[in-house]
């Protein structure tokens, strides 16, 4: 049977991808942020997951307003990425895992979720930046990835409680997949930031750390927030907490061990949190 061996949260802001491209990891601005990735990579190297289920949000590359999914799940053998318009370098495609993808889709439909099912999509920096951070130097090509995107652009967005439930259903699906496989679940994006409007630049480190605390111990508390609550507290893009909640949902009911945490703010316009959570057996 497949097993979820851990959950990782990480920002996916383009600035981090650019910093890697330019070799800025050890500069004063970025040092504290990048300090967390070597121990996480070490854990990944030891545990050697076969598959990563990656929650992200598309930022206007593939999930355009013409047909915008609330939840979309990749079922492709491979995912290209592409020019997004402002200079992040495309990387070689990530490898998919169609069999588990379809198993998850079957489970979701059986349990009254209504995903959009994607056999041919490009993934954006929301997916590629985390892959590059966790598996640098193209080593991400050694792991199979199932990208799952959540609408964080246009209201109405799924309620935090719905994203959590969605992740939970995906976790249940993984755990009942009959193949032996080690799966890691990635919640990307967040935390506090606002890119748009006169309020651009708001950050809320206290709320970010509160969210990281509750994500471990009591995610139901976070499910009580509406998306407007999150916007008030942490800015318009704080809604990206959706992916963290989906990741946490996938880990299951028990309280996981928080193996690692990092929080640095600001990186670009964002409060950047990273966590490694290990579910109890």
């Amino acid at each position: 049977m497949a097993k979820i061996i851990g959950g990782i949260t990480t920002s996916h802001i383009p600035a981090i991808g650019v910093a890697i491209d330019k070799g800025l990891e050890d500069t004063p601005y970025y040092r504290d942020l990048f300090a967390i990735y070597p121990p996480i990579r070490e854990w990944l190297n030891e545990e050697k997951p076969d598959i990563a289920v990656l929650f992200y949000n598309d930022h206007g590359l593939e999930m355009w307003l013409d047909k915008k999914p609330t939840f979309a799940i990749g079922c492709a053998p491979e995912y290209e990425n592409a020019d997004e318009g402002w200079g992040i370098k495309p990387i070689p495609p990530v490898t998919g895992e169609t069999e588990l993808s379809w198993h998850i889709v079957n489970h979701l439909i059986e349990n009254d979720f209504d995903p959009t099912v994607c056999q041919d999509i490009k993934v954006d920096h929301g997916a590629t930046v985390p892959m590059t951070l966790l598996w640098p130097n193209h080593t991400y090509q050694g792991i199979k990835v199932i990208p799952v995107s959540i609408n964080c652009e246009r209201h109405p967005m799924p309620k935090p409680s719905r994203s959590y439930a969605f992740g939970k259903a995906i976790g249940d699906a993984i755990r009942c997949w009959e193949k032996d496989a080690k799966v890691v679940v990635l919640g990307t994006g967040g935390l506090s930031h606002q890119l748009d409007g006169p309020r651009a630049g708001i950050l809320n480190g206290d709320f970010d750390n509160y969210c990281m605390d509750k994500l471990v111990s009591d995610p139901q508390e976070l499910c009580k927030f509406s998306n407007v609550d999150l916007i008030e507290k942490g800015g318009a893009q704080m809604v990206e907490l959706a992916m963290w909640l989906a990741m946490r949902g996938a880990l299951g009911e028990g309280i996981p061990e928080e193996r690692l945490r990092n929080y640095v703010s600001p990186i670009s316009n964002t409060g950047v949190g990273v966590q490694l959570l290990i579910p109890k057996d």
Binding site: C75, P77, W102, H103, H107, E110, C176
Partner: peptide, 25 residues
């Protein structure tokens, strides 16, 4: 554990995920 295999129907090929993957091109 749920079994997602669709019940076979004679003379019918269910166009499911496995078929959709094989037939994509």
């Amino acid at each position: 554990m749920t079994d997602y295999k669709m019940r076979p129907v004679e003379g019918t090929i269910h166009f499911d995920g496995a078929q959709a993957t094989k037939g994509f091109n």
